[in-house]
Every structure is written in C-alpha cells, then in structure tokens.
C-alpha cells in the first residue's frame, strides 16, 4: 500500500524543530526544517506573539520554547501523529532506532578515542587508516539508518530532512571535514541526537 506522506504545516515544523534542536537561530532552524531563513524568522515572530517562543539576546542566546510552547508542541505533534495514522510506524521505527543507537555511540567514541597499548587515548587524527576504518563504520551504519528514516518519511514528510542532513554530514566528513562526525552543530552525531529527541517527543516518551 502506498500513500502520500503527511505534510506538516510551517508553524508546527518550526515549533517542533526548536523542541528537538534546543536554543537556536534562524539559520540552524532553516537547516533543520528545510524552510528558507526569512520564512523561519517570520514563523518565529508569529509564535512569539502567541507566547510559544522567546528570544534571548547575547552570544549564547537565540530562539527557544516557552513552557507554553513546549506544551503546545507536545499536544500538536501527538495530534498530527494520529491524524497521519503513523503511530504504529513511528513506534516501530523508534524500536529499530534503539538498536542502532549503541552502534552510533560506539562509533562516535571510536572517532574521539582510539586503542593504544591496551588503553584508550585521544584520537589525534594523525592515522588516516584508523579514521577511515571508523568512517567505514559510519557508512555501514548509515545504510541502515537511511532505511529507517525512509520508512519514517513515508508516513511523515518532515522526517525526510534527517535523510538529507545525515547524508550531508557523512559526505562532508568523508571528504576531509572531520568536524562533521561529532563536533559541528550539523555533525552526524548532533543530527542523530536530534532525531532521537524527535522520536521521543513525537511519541511522548520522557527521556530516562
């Protein structure tokens, strides 16, 4: 059976991206939602007028959710899940995600620390052969993660962004930009963490 994936409206898309990303500026939210920056900004202002988002200035500032915004997101994202008839599919994808998650964490650890003489030492990235073995691991994991994200995108269109962002991070890491493994704000690890947060928020599961 094929059906059209359920599209999310722009305002919920931005609201929910803030929920999964945490405090962020329009550029990062544009990356997370796939909406153009000015559209994101316009939605953010509407949401702020409704009391759902708030802006804090300063170096570490940015847009964030208010308590009311968090509650509104939880309620609306859950309603969307049922409207899309996607609860079963997302629950199954989350269970599969939990199996892949330890692998991702192993690989991130291997990127940061490497075995030497029976102990782990910080990986100084001077051994291309080792780093490429770790990246091979990421490529292998990504093949399975992409299938999972494709299943999710088939019911809820907004999950398509994770396919694009994870593939993008991996491609950049593979072409020498090592910070796209764990360090950059659009790194594989950070996008993966947001996917984890998204699945929990969508299904209404508290962390721990």
């Amino acid at each position: 059976m094929t059906r059209t994936p359920y599209p999310t409206g722009d305002d919920l898309l931005v609201l929910h991206a803030l929920r999964c990303v945490g405090s962020a500026g329009p550029a990062r939210l544009s990356e997370a939602t796939g909406l153009p920056g000015p559209d994101v900004e316009s939605v953010l202002i509407d949401l702020a007028v409704a009391g759902l988002t708030t802006y804090s200035p300063g170096d570490f500032g940015g847009w964030g959710l208010t308590e009311a915004g968090r509650a509104a997101d939880a309620e609306r994202i859950s309603r969307e899940l049922d409207a899309a008839g996607a609860r079963t599919a997302v629950t199954e994808a989350y269970e599969d995600f939990l199996v892949l998650n330890p692998e991702l964490l192993d690989l991130c650890t291997a990127w940061q620390l490497r075995p030497a003489g029976g102990v782990l030492v910080p990986n100084d990235h001077t051994d291309p052969a080792y780093d490429s073995r770790v990246l091979d691991g990421f490529t292998d994991l990504h093949r399975r993660a992409d299938v999972l994200c494709a299943d999710l995108s088939a019911v809820l269109l907004r999950f398509r962004r994770y396919r694009v962002r994870l593939a993008g991070a991996l491609a950049r890491a593979g072409s020498g930009a090592g910070e796209y493994v764990t360090d950059d704000m659009e790194s594989y690890h950070i996008v993966w963490f947001q996917l984890h947060e998204d699945l929990l928020a969508t299904l209404g599961i508290p962390r721990h």
Binding site: P102, E103, D106, L107, A110, R114, P115, Y130, R133, V134, D136, G137, D140, L141, R144
Partner: peptide
C-alpha cells in the same frame, strides 16, 4: 555490527 566494528577498530 557493533561487535564487528569493535574488532575492526581493535
């Protein structure tokens, strides 16, 4: 896959 990766790296 986890065990295979571990062996590859070690």
């Amino acid at each position: 896959p986890r065990a295979r990766t571990y062996r590859e790296l070690h």
